[in-house]
Design a protein around this nucleic acid. Structure first.
Lengths: 251, 251
DNA sequence: AGGGATTTGCGAACGAAGTCACAAAGTTGA
DNA sequence: TCAACTTTGTGACTTCGTTCGCAAATCCCT
């Protein structure tokens, strides 16, 4: 494990000067799985496991071992043939890649049921995330104290957003408002300077292309489940309902 | 669209007799977008829009028009060339495909902050989903009343699960417990007969292959955002930190 | 009725992600 | 030291998903 990197690395080593040009691009699908690998590895490390094979780790992560190895190969050659991966070392490498070696401040907008549940969510603070603000516009909730995972937290006005971002305390914005307020809030988060946003509102949001927007949509997930649940029902009790039969045939 | 289907379709047309063999398979990626299309269309219908082009609808849904048209083409030829799509008709077709024309009962396990927030979540009940049970094992919360989106709801014991499923009231299970309880709860949901499960716990769960398991993982989403946030930081202030530089080069 | 303007449906080309399978690199034990 | 065994890293292939581009269908205007 020294000069053995035949991987596709951009030609110039000191070329454009930026580290980015040197660091290989990691496929989005891989990035989405790294957090799971990290979580499982951290638990293994906690339990005192020193070494693990791709096969065993893959099992614990619910993926195939080939996929796991290919994913890890995008980060570098961190395994040892015939042995497997060093658990603490790999855990650290993934943490570093994900940016978990430094703490990130999260500001949550919307102090309704969801917003408050998020604040008190364990595992939020667990991996280096800290809620640095819970904002709302509703005047009569401003100032109310909310139980946080670490300390407590007081609901602030949305006007405090700019300060949180400019002072470098907030890095990630979370939208936990009703759908109709989501785009406005999103625009304010972007205007305040945030470039990473997580949206819980059931709304399609648009952002400038340099902003990373992700969404968590409960009702979408339920509807996907409903789709499969219905298909199962159709399979087991094929409906003779003329509507669906007719439409399925002629269309 | 009658004999013009070069797609991979099981050989037998009247083969197994099931409608399923006739109904085209819908790609998973398409299914995942249908709920968004449906939501936007429902809003358009509400607003009185009669007809819409793929271009305009795609814009509102945040996808490309080509993707939208291909997605819709998997359901059938529901558009009119030179005109666009009939909003109420298309809304209904998607609703039917997703199984939203019938109500689905949802049972939530775990009455902590998240579980309770889910119960009172608007938009839960909005698209034909109804929370029919909120279960927990913790003895001192059993019986407590919780504000629901529609009526109220009393926290029940996990033991009431089997009854909810067998009586046909519950179709979808939601896991809102801490990570360490998730697999046990999941096993009980499956044993009780549920085949559609949504997991909010930060844990990798394993289920029989005929069970549809989906997950919503807040900390994974945050970590993906952190990854991008960090890359941005690297790009703008290329670190000369010997640690990361050294590891990036030799590994 | 006919020509020009729209807009769908979809084949074909492309690209991203996942799987397979095996050489290379390492370990272990005699 | 060497042979048998283990396990990674990765090229080749397959599958899935997206984009492109255009013929076919429909509308609208004259």
């Amino acid at each position: 494990m020294s000069a053995s990197r035949p991987t596709a690395v951009p030609a110039s080593i000191e070329g454009s000067g930026s580290l980015r040009s040197l660091v290989r691009e990691i496929p989005a699908a891989t990035v989405a799985r790294l957090p799971v690998y990290h979580r499982v590895l951290a638990a293994l490390e906690e339990a005192g496991t020193r070494t693990i094979s791709s096969e065993a780790l893959a099992q614990s992560c619910g993926v195939s071992s080939a996929k796991l190895r290919k994913d890890l190969s995008h980060l570098g050659s961190y395994g040892t043939r015939g042995v497997g991966y060093d658990v603490p070392f790999l855990t650290y490498q993934i943490a570093r890649e994900l940016g978990l070696t430094q703490p990130w401040g999260v500001v949550i907008v919307g102090a309704g049921n969801l917003g408050q549940a998020l604040v008190s969510y364990r595992g939020f603070a667990s991996r280096g995330f800290r809620v640095v603000g819970l904002l709302d516009i509703h005047p009569d909730v401003i100032g109310r104290q909310v139980e946080s995972a670490d300390s407590g937290l007081q609901i602030q006005t949305l006007g405090d957003l700019e300060d949180l971002v400019r002072s470098g305390r907030a890095h990630i914005g979370v939208i936990a408002t009703p759908a109709d307020a989501a785009q406005d809030v999103c625009d304010r988060l972007v205007a305040a300077g945030l470039r990473s946003i997580l949206n819980f509102a059931p709304a399609v949001l648009s952002v400038p292309e340099d902003v990373e927007l992700r969404k968590v949509d409960l009702s979408v997930e339920l509807q996907i489940l409903a789709f499969h649940e219905q298909r199962r029902a159709d399979d087991h009790h094929p409906s003779q309902d003329p509507t669906s039969l007719g439409e399925a045939i002629n269309a």
